[in-house]
Simulated assay, not measured.
Amino acid sequence: MSTVHDFSAVSLAGQPVNLAQYQDKVLLVVNTASACGFTPQYAGLEKLYKRFHEQGFEVLGFPCNQFGAQEPGTHDEIGAFCEKNFGVTFPLFAKIDVNGDNAHPLYQYLKKTAPGLLGTEAIKWNFTKFLIRRDGTVAHRYAPTTKPEELVQDIEALLAE
Rank of each mutant, 00 (worst) to 15 (best):
N31T: 15
T32H: 06
A33N: 08
S34F: 08
S34N: 10
S34V: 12
F38V: 12
T39Y: 03
P40D: 14
Q41V: 10
L45K: 03
E46Y: 10
L48R: 04
L48N: 06
Y49S: 07
Y49N: 13
K50N: 13
H53G: 05
E54W: 07
Q55G: 10
Q55A: 15
E58T: 01
E58M: 07
V59Y: 01
G61F: 12
F62K: 00
C64N: 04
N65C: 10
Q66L: 07
Q66T: 14
F67P: 12
Q70F: 07
E71L: 04
P72I: 03
P72N: 00
P72A: 07
G73K: 05
G73T: 04
T74C: 03
D76M: 00
E77C: 04
E77T: 01
E77N: 09
I78K: 01
G79D: 05
A80S: 02
C82R: 00
G87Q: 03
V88G: 04
T89Q: 10
F90C: 07
F90G: 01
P91T: 14
A94C: 08
K95W: 04
K95G: 05
I96T: 06
V98C: 01
N99I: 05
N99V: 10
N102T: 02
N102Y: 06
Q108H: 01
Q108P: 02
Q108K: 15
T113I: 15
T113H: 08
P115L: 09
G116K: 14
L117W: 12
L118A: 14
L118G: 03
G119H: 02
T120W: 09
A122F: 15
A122Q: 13
I123V: 15
K124L: 12
N126E: 11
T128S: 15
